[in-house]
């Protein structure tokens, strides 16, 4: 069962790698979801076709419940990958800090040295552009403002912050 899921995931991952080398999509997460679900549908169709002929015993699939389990694992794995993928596209400040301190070896780094390595553009330019692309913010005459969609998303996250008893968005 696990082998089936790993095979499906690796096939989708390989396709994703090849496609990214050819052309990087504008909405990468959407593209990843499409690739991974298409692979799952194609893979499941092949499995079900062979299931009738009882050719897949070694895959450990005995009933439709097992296929449901594979689907759940695949779904959870795909969503996890989408969350992690966000970390590839943008530099996470925490990981950026740790990586730079790591590169300084035993010498270590001061706050000032870290600030010098991180111009504001690194963290903000891509992110604000993402907000505009996803229509969460609007850019007019060189000024950014929040859109209706952005307000709804912000409301949801502020509710979560309250629910988690956190003070504010810390950043």
């Amino acid at each position: 069962m696990l082998i089936t899921c790993i095979s499906l995931f690796l096939t989708a991952f390989l396709m994703h790698l090849i496609l990214w080398r050819i052309r990087h999509p504008k909405s990468p997460v959407r593209a990843i979801l499409i690739i991974f679900f298409m692979t799952f549908i194609a893979g499941t169709a092949v499995l079900l076709n062979n299931y009738e002929a009882s050719k897949i015993e070694w895959f450990g699939l005995h009933s439709m419940w097992d296929i449901l389990r594979i689907f759940l694992l695949y779904l959870a794995w795909t969503f996890t990958y989408c969350f992690i993928y966000h970390g590839f596209e943008d530099d996470s400040p925490s990981l950026f800090i740790v990586l730079n301190i790591w590169n300084s070896h035993n010498k270590g780094m001061t706050v000032e040295e870290l600030v010098d390595l991180m111009p504001d553009e690194v963290f903000f330019k891509n992110r604000i552009e993402y907000l505009v692309i996803e229509k969460l913010a609007v850019l007019e005459n060189g000024r950014y403002s929040i859109s209706k969609k952005g307000k709804s998303i912000l409301k949801l996250f502020l509710f979560l912050i309250k629910l988690m008893k956190q003070d504010s968005v810390k950043g």
Binding site: F124, Y130, G142, R143, Y144, S145, G150, L154, Q166
Partner: peptide, 26 residues
């Protein structure tokens, strides 16, 4: 919701009624 820079940026934009330039945000 707690740590994302994008959510914090949205909050900054929400507080500004006339919008913000990139320099204002910083």
């Amino acid at each position: 919701s707690v740590t994302a820079i994008r959510i914090r940026l949205l909050q900054e934009l929400d507080h500004a009624s006339d919008g913000l330039s990139f320099e204002d945000l910083l």
